[in-house]
Design a protein around this nucleic acid. Structure first.
Length: 638
RNA sequence: GCUGGUGUAGCUCAGUGGCAGAGCGCGUCCUUGGUAAGGACGAGGUCAUGGGUUCGACCCCCAUCACCAGCUCCA
């Protein structure tokens, strides 16, 4: 008898022809009930698949990432089946499982709104209640094309025509049949907790030139409890939203008079200033020189740089006294003019010019998102000019700097991505090959995990990007490193080598935080507004209990001032509980309550935002402590 | 830019084809109270903007703008 070896090393004897489901029932009824799929010799398959001979066998349950994906993918099929029943003329796009759920794209005779989801959900519930089986059908590709043509499923035909295999698999759920690789749950009844969440538009194949389909999003979990928890955590995440906290903490605002442009309030400026001060310190230490270039430059420059050709749609233009000007969408051309204003020796290289450069980009109206996507932002930019031999080390230096900065700000959950040459680009094949090679080399030598995105590079060079997740788990780009051979060519940049001849430098564009605005957005969401003390707009607030303590409170304030602490004194005629509540809502790290005892002993009663009442501490030692916390830029766990 | 949704006081939100509402915040006064909301009174609105339907529109219709979710794009 053949045997199946389970992950724990146990062997199960089975009869040839037994499906994985049957074998699961040998192991135990609970497993047989909860396994949504199987892995036979490492290949993910349906639980109904029958192994052959001695195999390794692993059962996939809904509570594993793989199992959850199967569950959700199956839920998307049930969604499609339900939609087809309600809208028989629906044409089906694709319906994969995604990070927090699944979606399915449809072309429908009417545009759906949120209210249309309920009847669809009810139809899905019926299918689940009937426990309709998922049946796998394998057929020659040609026949599948015929079937789909008969059903009028043009999108499926398009996909099938691009598949290279001779045989394809389809899954039948009730009277619904969909092209699909699988695997799926054996029966719809295994979907215990499914919910449709939203409708949205989506382009067929993500191409804005093609049909606009309607996408229905949903999510599924093994149990209702987990679904409820997920929905609750989404609600919690909304409370971290930087747009909400930006208003609550009085950091910034947006106005109809300038859509996509942030207005920074005093609290926000305090935060930004602190970030920039630290940034300058680190860059100085790492051999960067700071430069500053104009916001508006002659349009001719942008023709020379290639921006007009490749980036025009994101640029703002204006005319003054007949001179055509453009607001800079990037800082590089300005820096190039600085480089070219003098002759350079190889001895100067690598030359690192940093710039906190304010750029303007015309973003399409639908894409703006708080501070994370704006039309004017400050790139924490730098351009490094170096020799070909220096490129890899410089890239490594930049990657190291980015990681260093992110960690100092407490952001350790990032994704690294390498992007290669896009279709719209300048420069020769050799340049691109060499540039991409040095990026791969740098990441490999630093032993970093990264993913590769083909064709996603900048028009002038390939890049390494760092991505961070926002509160709703959407990833946003922050740091970036881009190797550029083209711009030095276009601007005829040179340096004099040891051979006394002119050579072409290589240019590295890089941003560590990405944009100061976006970065502030990340920080707000990461800390839910309760910043590390060194970043907090107001670091301590003195709370006198009654009027007679105001004088001492003022003295505490003067001590804090002398130590460089950003502080306030709350002299309102409110009860102490009220003052504490207000300071807590403003997420001020330290509350210093002063009453009779404190006045007498020259102490402060320290309460940290987050709840802990530390009792009385001598004023001197508190001032020393907070001063050290700030100057060391300590990140406390709260 | 595309699909769907939302725009009422500084904020969060009720509401009706016939005089515009609440809570919080804000102002004044009272209160001086030891760790998450003390009390009284008061001010605040072209109901996003522009057209239309109607005796009459914040409400119904159309357009525009902004915002929200997603698509595309991106620091």
């Amino acid at each position: 008898m053949p045997k199946a070896t389970l992950p724990d090393g146990k062997d199960i004897q089975y009869k040839s022809g037994d499906s994985a489901a049957v074998i699961a029932s040998f192991v135990g009824p609970r497993l047989a009930e909860s396994a949504v799929a199987a892995e036979i010799n490492g290949n993910l398959t349906d639980i109904s698949a029958a192994p052959e001979g001695d195999v390794s066998l692993k059962f996939i349950t809904g509570d594993t990432p793989q199992g959850l994906e199967v569950l959700r993918h199956s839920a998307s099929h049930v969604l499609a089946a339900a939609v087809l029943r309600l809208y028989p003329s629906a044409k089906l796009g694709v319906g994969p499982a995604v990070e927090d759920g699944f979606y399915y794209d449809f072309k429908l005779p009417k545009n759906l709104n949120e209210d249309d989801l309920k009847p669809i959900e009810e139809e899905m519930a019926k299918i689940i209640q009937r426990d309709e089986p998922f049946e796998r059908v394998v057929m020659p590709r040609g026949r599948a094309i015929e079937e789909m043509k008969k059903l009028g499923q043009d999108f499926k035909v398009e996909i099938l025509e691009e598949i290279e295999d001779d045989e394809v698999s389809l899954y039948k759920t009730g009277d619904f049949m969909d092209l699909c690789r699988g695997p799926h749950v054996p029966r719809a009844g295994m979907l215990k907790a499914v919910k449709l969440t939203k409708v949205a538009g989506a382009y067929w194949r993500g191409d804005a030139e093609r049909e606009n389909l309607q996408r229905i999003y949903g999510t599924a979990f093994p149990t209702q409890k987990e679904l409820d928890e997920h929905l609750k955590s989404l609600e919690e995440a909304k409370k971290r939203d930087h747009r909400l906290l930006g208003r609550q903490l009085d950091l910034f605002s947006f106005h109809e008079e300038a859509p996509g442009f942030a207005f920074w309030h005093p609290n926000g400026v305090a935060l930004v200033t602190e970030i920039e001060r630290f940034w300058r310190e680190v860059h100085r230490q790492r051999g960067y020189k700071e430069v500053r270039t104009p916001a508006m430059l002659n349009e001719e420059l942008w023709h020379r740089s290639g921006h007009y050709e490749n980036y025009r749609e994101y640029m703002y233009f204006t005319t003054s006294e007949g001179m055509k000007l453009a607001l800079k969408p990037m800082n590089c051309p300005g820096t190039l003019l600085i480089y070219n204003s003098t002759k350079h020796s190889y001895r100067e290289l690598p030359l690192r010019y940093a710039e906190l450069g304010q750029v303007h980009r015309f973003e399409m109206s639908g894409v703006m998102h708080g501070l994370l996507r704006v039309r004017e932002f400050t790139i924490d930019d730098a351009h490094i000019f170096c020799t070909l031999e220096q490129v890899t080390d410089e890239v490594k230096g930049v990657v190291d700097l980015i990681i260093f900065l992110l960690e100092k700000f407490g952001l350790t959950d990032y994704i690294v991505e390498l992007s290669t040459r896009p279709t719209k680009s300048i420069g020769t094949d050799e340049m691109w090959e060499s540039a991409e090679g040095s990026l791969y080399r740098a990441l490999d030598e630093m032993k970093l995990d990264y993913k590769v995105s083909e064709g996603e590079g900048a028009f002038y060079g390939p890049k390494i990007d760092f991505h961070i997740r926002d509160c709703l788990k959407r990833t946003q780009q922050c740091g970036t490193v881009q190797v550029d051979f083209a711009m030095p060519e276009r601007f005829e940049m040179t340096y004099i080598g040891p051979d006394n001849a002119e050579h072409r430098p290589v240019m590295i564009h890089r941003a560590a935080l990405g944009s100061v605005e976006r970065f502030v957005g990340f920080l707000i969401e990461h800390y839910a507004g309760l910043f590390p003390t060194w970043l907090a707009p107001v670091q301590a607030i003195v709370l006198p209990i009654v009027n007679r303590h105001h004088e001492y409170a003022g003295e505490v304030g003067r001590e804090l001032e002398a130590a460089g602490v950003r502080y306030e004194v709350d002299t309102r005629s409110e009860k102490i509980g009220h003052k504490i509540r207000d300071a807590t809502l403003r997420k001020i790290p330290y509350m210093l309550v002063v009453g009779d005892r404190e006045c007498k002993d020259r102490t402060v009663a320290v309460r940290e935002c987050g709840g802990t009442d530390r009792g009385s501490v001598s004023l001197d030692s508190f001032v020393r402590e907070i001063g050290e916390e700030i100057s060391s830029r300590l990140i406390k766990r709260r």
